[in-house]
């Protein structure tokens, strides 16, 4: 018989590996944050330049040309970030010789997607209803909820990122007109900080 300590450690590891998606890479957080900051920089030059990002807008946001550029940039950041996360998770699962698409992985994606998809449709509705001023806070809040919901099925540290996004989202709801700054903080800076912490904690 093996030592009882070994038995218990084995049991604990099995419980964890069968319920949690552990192939999330810290590097994908850093990269997603970088893409978001680049896009925020581009958005700044389209909307505010040469005024500071909390000053007067030189271009009206609802002007069709500006709006199209903003939407395309946001969609690109989203797509490239998801693709990066998938590729890096695939590589990490190969390195740790675990499978990527486990029941735990499916539950994680499911838990993440429900608030995210609902939030996405909700923001589209806000847009068509003309409440553009509340879209930036809404995206941050729904993203934070999605992370907290998903944290039960992956490295539980992402719930702290979720709480930060929630706090930032609520704060930005009370400071209309600073959406771009809060977006850059929430999707850019927070991702980079969280990604680096995860990278040093788990990936090295």
């Amino acid at each position: 018989m093996r030592k009882p300590e070994q038995e218990l450690a084995d049991i604990k590891s099995m419980m964890e590996r069968s319920t949690r998606f552990l192939s999330l890479s810290g590097l994908s957080g850093i990269l997603a944050g970088t893409y978001a900051l680049i896009a925020a920089g581009m958005a700044y030059t389209w909307i505010y330049y040469p005024n500071p990002p909390y000053g007067f807008r030189t271009n009206y946001i609802l002007d069709t040309a500006t709006l199209t550029k903003l939407l395309i940039a946001a969609f690109m950041v989203l797509t490239i970030s998801i693709a990066t996360a998938l590729i890096l998770s695939q590589r990490k699962s190969e390195r740790t010789s675990s499978k990527l698409w486990t029941p735990a992985g499916k539950r994680f994606v499911n838990a993440l997607l429900i608030p995210l998809v609902v939030g996405g449709f909700f923001c589209i509705a806000l847009f068509f209803r003309g409440y553009t001023i509340i879209i930036a806070p809404a995206t941050l809040v729904f993203y934070g909820l999605a992370l907290i919901n998903g944290s039960r099925f992956t490295l539980s540290d992402i719930k702290y990122l979720g709480y930060c996004e929630l706090g930032l989202g609520i704060l930005s709801a009370f400071f209309p007109g600073y959406g771009l700054i809060f977006w850059a903080l929430g999707f850019g800076v927070l991702h980079i900080i969280y990604g680096s912490m995860m990278y040093y904690k788990y990936d090295r």
Binding site: D10, M15, S18, T19, T102, P103
Partner: peptide, 17 residues
């Protein structure tokens, strides 16, 4: 151990894990 924390688990997933 796996069945204590998962309501159900299928054969192939057992095999992989």
């Amino acid at each position: 151990s796996i069945l204590m924390v998962n309501a159900e688990y299928d054969f192939n997933s057992f095999k992989e894990l």
